[in-house]
Design a protein around this nucleic acid. Sequence first.
DNA 1: CCTCTTTGTATCAAAATTGTTTCAAAAACT
DNA 2: AGTTTTTGAAACAATTTTGATACAAAGAGG
Lengths: 221, 221
Amino acid sequence: MLKILIVEDEKPISDLIVMNLTRAGYNCTALYDGESAADMLETNNFDLILLDIMLPKINGYELMEYIRPMNIPVIFITAKASLDDRIKGLTSGAEDYLVKPFEIVELLARINIVLRRYNKTESILTFKDITVDTENHIVKKGDTAVSLTPKEFELLVVFIRNKNITLFRDRLYELVWPELIYSDELSETRTLDLHIQRLRKKLALKNDLKTIYNAGYRLAE
Amino acid sequence: MLKILIVEDEKPISDLIVMNLTRAGYNCTALYDGESAADMLETNNFDLILLDIMLPKINGYELMEYIRPMNIPVIFITAKASLDDRIKGLTSGAEDYLVKPFEIVELLARINIVLRRYNKTESILTFKDITVDTENHIVKKGDTAVSLTPKEFELLVVFIRNKNITLFRDRLYELVWPELIYSDELSETRTLDLHIQRLRKKLALKNDLKTIYNAGYRLAE
DNA sequence: CCTCTTTGTATCAAAATTGTTTCAAAAACT
DNA sequence: AGTTTTTGAAACAATTTTGATACAAAGAGG
């Protein structure tokens, strides 16, 4: 499980982030000032840091200097919308930044991008009793191996990487059948439905992989 | 919660705006001159600014120059109805303008439009114990998920985005059944009533979603 | 109280969307 | 080349959503 450190002094915001990242499958640690963050980094390893600029004791920029040699990706969180800050944040070594207030979905998307860039994507994904080894293309339901075709495998990975998020039909075609999105009739093909059906059958996902009528599908716990 | 900055030196008008916007679910900050507005913008982030033209210290146009690089949408408020001002207001980068005295409903409608144009619509809406996640198409009453059909969902979103506002039948058809407004018989269809009924039943909104006889409906707390 | 207008509700069929089966073409593998 | 596997098209079935119809109930105004 990937570990994310959240350094944000506004408790409500921090809680919101922690709740959502936890639900998305990350191991979260929340701290409320720069000093304890520095301490924590002494002894613990993280895959990503979300860092507020305005912090008590040690501020975000100062902490950044401390983090840089560790080669851990950082996404800045800032309340200030000024362009200066944006530039300063990025040049000080952050991978990305978000301006408060931000959408959770936006945050999740940025985290995904940054982790991928750092090759910190997990090779073992899980959903309930389903385990997916993305490196070796092995899928297990409980202890028994399930053989999936390539497309089925891709689709499953997309769903697990986006669990609890509604994936619209368009989006799914974009992710799994990118070659189709510029051909005309996405609306007339039953391809997606077919693969959904196959996944549901092979992995007994009838109740977990939900249909969102007139929208798409969602893998929910 | 979306944050709106109101810069208006006439206290009664400012209070009126704040009261109504707060009731509509926005986080409001009221300031009474251009200088303190500029200060506030240094450190805080807003999703929209309502800006009076005639202000003490720094006037609206001058402040506008300051705001422009921040890429925050601005709606001008002006007591002057002259065409010159209209043109000047819009060309100086404002998204819209309102001439005093204006109707609150008008203001709310303009705000809605501008925020949508800037993609600053919130993805999580709430009304009492009802939560609507517009990105994931999830509706919850308390902790239990409620499944709504697409039209029901759209209608609910409209009501929550316009809570405490009476939505006239015409307006509701315009927003949820835009394809119908140019067909003739809106008056003879019971479609809206049906969906209202369904929303009331599914979400126990009998007392909150009120019928305004000979007008429309209002979702009120 | 009566009438007219407007709104609420139950029922049901049409329309839209999704699920399923079958099967042939394409791709991958011997 | 022959076999197996994978993929998606086509056709059809099932399900869900939607709105029409018809009638009941409620409000307004005399």
